Simulated scan of single mutants.
Amino acid sequence: SHRVFISNLQKEIEKQTGYRSSRKRRSEAQYDYEVYHSLEEIQSWMFEMNQTHPDLVDMFSVGKSYEGRPLYVLQVGEKKKAVWIDCGVHAREWIGPAFCQWFVKEVVLFNNAQIKILRHWVFFTVTVSLFVLQDRFWRKTRSKNHKFHCRGVDANRNWKCSLFPSPDEGASSHPCDDTYCGPYPESEPEVKAVAKFLRKHKKRIKAYISIHAYAQMLLYPYSYKYRSRPCAFTLQESAAQNAVTALYSAYGVRYRYGPASTTLYVSSGSSIDWAYRNGIPYAFAFELRDTGYFGFLLPESLINPTCTETMRAVKAIASGLLKKCETDRDRFPYI
């Protein structure tokens, strides 16, 4: 038996890609946060946020991609303690970069009670890191493998944690597979650049949040094995429960939460495992809407509700972390 979810896939792709000639570059006040933007549009927006809000937003590059594009980061806020958020690690997950833009917009432009809690932190936000437009369903980086004539490495299997991935540990050793782990840890300049920055600032970074899609889940370590809970398991579980409860309060959308290996599937070389192993106990990966009907082609009409509810979840994580910092004076149960 089968069921057709989308009867004309090409038409749905064209709605979100290069068939938007009427959509021109606009000022910050007119910027549309409820559509998917190209890399050029996103980077122009980043520059503009930096220029119009220099007291709150700083912009810098942590390195370059394989194809030579700068890996820009927005630093929002000036506090000592920090939270890292990355979006767009997998190129086809367009709702990720849309959320990072939404997040920055909310923190910078609004000053209501719901947002004030976020101003206790500095947020390092990678609004987009890969974002390839040639193939709407491209997942990996763009590095070349001349032996197999295949491009790319899964940037979420290339982190240096646990044993380096092998096919039976939630990653592939074949360069043509979507979950190819790469020839060695941090082989990809994108991963290496971010890892270097996080290592340099790990004493001040108290949380790591990676935005993905899709599945409607909130995941935390470990990703790479079923057995053994991390020492901070209770801390992570409580924070995740509060976050999904806050998310549910917006539109009644249910998210599952738990260790990535048992809640989703086993994967090795993941960024949340690396972050936890490197002393960041609050390490989470969101899998945003939906559960498979639209999949990676989440309609632009769902950007607003998806980002609105996810903001509540991130706020809950930041709020809980702030209380934990105040109570424990930054002493966390590291492994």
Rank of each mutant, 00 (worst) to 15 (best):
T245A: 12
N145R: 06
E48F: 02
M46P: 01
Y276E: 02
E287H: 07
Y293N: 08
A316Y: 08
K225P: 00
S267W: 02
V266W: 10
K324W: 09
F5S: 06
K324H: 15
V314P: 13
W159L: 04
A318S: 03
C176E: 04
Y184I: 02
H149T: 10
S173W: 09
K81V: 03
Q10C: 05
H146G: 01
L198T: 09
Q30T: 09
C100L: 01
A316S: 12
E287R: 03
K144N: 13
Y214G: 00
E190L: 01
S267H: 03
D177N: 12
S1Y: 10
H53V: 07
F60M: 01
P189N: 09
H212P: 00
E14Y: 09
Y208N: 06
H90N: 09
C150Q: 11
Y276M: 04
R26P: 08
V253Q: 11
A207S: 13
V253Y: 02
L9P: 03
V62R: 00
A260Q: 05
K324Y: 14
E287F: 05
Q114N: 15
L74A: 11
D290Q: 07
A275N: 09
P189W: 02
S238T: 14
A275M: 00
F47M: 10
Q236T: 05
I317Y: 00
C231Q: 11
E106C: 06
H146M: 10
L298C: 07
R69P: 07
F47A: 10
L130A: 14
S270G: 14
H120C: 06
Y334P: 01
G252L: 04
V76D: 02
D154M: 08
A98G: 05
R229C: 08
L9Y: 10
S44D: 13
S27N: 15
K11P: 04
G152R: 00
E237S: 15
I335W: 06
S22V: 00
V76N: 01
S301Y: 01
A195D: 08
E287Q: 05
K15D: 08
Q241K: 04
F148E: 13
E186A: 09
N156W: 14
A260L: 05
L130E: 13
P259A: 04
A195P: 06
Y31C: 06
W159P: 10
S210Y: 04
S143W: 04
